[in-house]
């Protein structure tokens, strides 16, 4: 496995993405929404002074719940990128000549993974800065201190988010091996979000708490899922499978 070759495959994908407006949108839209929308909601409820949502006592919990959307985004964005970059190649039949080069299956797969992981992390981290600044600006008056940055959000961004991105990428590889077009890859891809939405709902009813411990447990579970998906996806991504079974 030569990292330089995987990087080569990834940089080719980046060049392709630049000519693909759909991919650019799918990377940008979600982070823009969460980083702008949540501070805006807080600002709006405070202006209306409708208490409840912005009451000082529940505010930290609420902000932690908001921040969980960064995990959902981290799982959502790679679906669009990876399904395009793999199913797209399938549609163009451009994997066959690629597989006839000395690149190994692992290098190609890693390259595909990098091309989905890096833009996602870049977008989510950029969004997290806007989010933190926006939330602090709207809540510092109430709380008397800047809520962000803090360790809880740090754990979420640096541990849970990457683990969720990897899960989504590996899952996309598996889905892409079965799907015939980008659209159907995306619609199957959405299933990976359900467990995360379930975690969110469980936290809302108080079964899981979205604090440091909660995030570490979630990261542990997702890591185990990552390992399982890794084995399935590398089995799916083999030249013979790709050429004879990927229809």
């Amino acid at each position: 496995m030569r990292l330089s070759k995987a990087w080569l495959v990834a940089s080719r994908d980046f060049k392709i993405f630049r000519h693909q407006k759909n991919i650019l949108y799918s990377i940008i839209v979600f982070p823009v929404i969460i980083s702008v929308l949540f501070p805006a909601i807080l600002e709006f409820t405070q202006l209306r002074n409708s208490g409840g949502l912005a009451a000082v006592g529940v505010l930290p919990n609420l902000l932690n719940s908001f921040s969980f959307f960064f995990v959902i985004g981290a799982a959502y964005i790679p679906l669009g990128i990876a399904s395009y970059s793999i199913v797209g190649e399938k549609v163009e039949k451009s994997l066959e000549p690629l597989l006839a080069t000395p690149l190994t299956d692992g290098e190609i797969l890693l390259g595909k993974a990098i091309s989905a992981v890096l833009p996602t992390l870049a977008a989510m981290y950029a969004a997290s800065i806007v989010f933190m600044v926006g939330i602090d600006a709207t809540t510092v008056g109430r709380l008397g201190y800047n809520y962000f940055p803090n360790w809880t959000f740090g754990v979420l961004l640096l541990i849970v988010v990457p683990v969720a991105v990897v899960m989504s990428v590996l899952y996309s590889v598996i889905v892409s091996s079965r799907a015939n077009d980008v659209r159907s890859a995306n619609s199957y891809g959405i299933f990976i979000l359900f467990p995360l939405l379930a975690i969110y709902l469980l936290s809302e009813v108080g079964i899981i708490s979205l604090d440091i411990n909660g995030f570490l447990i979630i990261a542990g579970i997702l890591s185990a899922v990552d390992v399982a998906l890794y084995f399935v996806s590398t089995a799916a991504f083999q030249r013979e499978e790709i050429l004879t079974k990927w229809k």
Binding site: K15, H19, E89, P97, A100
Partner: peptide
């Protein structure tokens, strides 16, 4: 072998967006 061969497959397989 893959180092010393070149292949033009039956469907050309170019990256259309490059």
């Amino acid at each position: 072998i893959r180092k010393i061969i070149g292949l033009v497959p039956d469907n050309v397989g170019l990256s259309e967006h490059l």
